[in-house]
């Protein structure tokens, strides 16, 4: 399937995605979908289309929203970057581990570093921050300024 065929089939299947698929260069497609339509598009892309691999999931802080990109790939080398925007208030996404078990570690990373809840994520240990990392500190958020560097103990400041 070529990039153009993938674009046409998506637009044919979902009327509201007219002109939403952007072909930036050979083998690279970009698609933004509304949050409430994400699951049906994701299932269609990975089951009815040749996009059988999940390369990784990128989460990012966009100011008023969070952006989540699912990098899907076909065996032919085509990558489709499927993006959703979720509100900053009580951010949450659905876990895709039932479809791709490899999503597990990528979702844990988003949960730890951006503070986005992942609904349906199986029980397991956190990744990548330490077990004693303070609550409510999310390093990849743009307004995060780092943990306090106040020194405890030592003799540097002793009079």
């Amino acid at each position: 399937m070529t990039e153009e065929q993938i674009k046409q089939q998506i637009e044919h299947q979902f009327g509201y995605l007219k002109d939403a698929v952007v072909i930036k260069r050979a083998r690279r497609l970009w698609l933004d979908v509304p949050m409430d339509k994400f699951e049906e598009v994701f299932v269609y892309l990975t089951e009815a289309m040749p996009l059988v691999r999940l390369l990784t999931i990128t989460g990012m802080d966009e100011g008023t929203t969070f952006g989540i990109i699912y990098h899907l790939a076909a065996e032919s080398g085509i990558i489709l970057n499927l993006r959703i925007h979720i509100p900053r208030e009580n951010p949450a996404i659905q876990s895709m581990t039932s479809k791709f078990s490899c999503a597990d570690i990528y979702e844990r990373e988003i949960k730890d570093l951006l503070g986005i809840q992942v609904l349906g994520l199986p029980e397991g240990r956190r990744y990548p921050l330490t077990d004693n990392w303070p609550d409510g500190e999310y390093p990849l958020r743009k307004d995060w300024k780092g943990l306090s560097t106040e020194k405890k103990g030592g003799t540097l400041n002793a009079q």
Binding site: L55, H71, I79
Partner: peptide, 18 residues
Amino acid sequence: EATGRYEAPRGEDVHYVK
């Protein structure tokens, strides 16, 4: 923004840059 791939000795490496 761009998504890049590279075949590292251990396997496929993926970078996303915005």
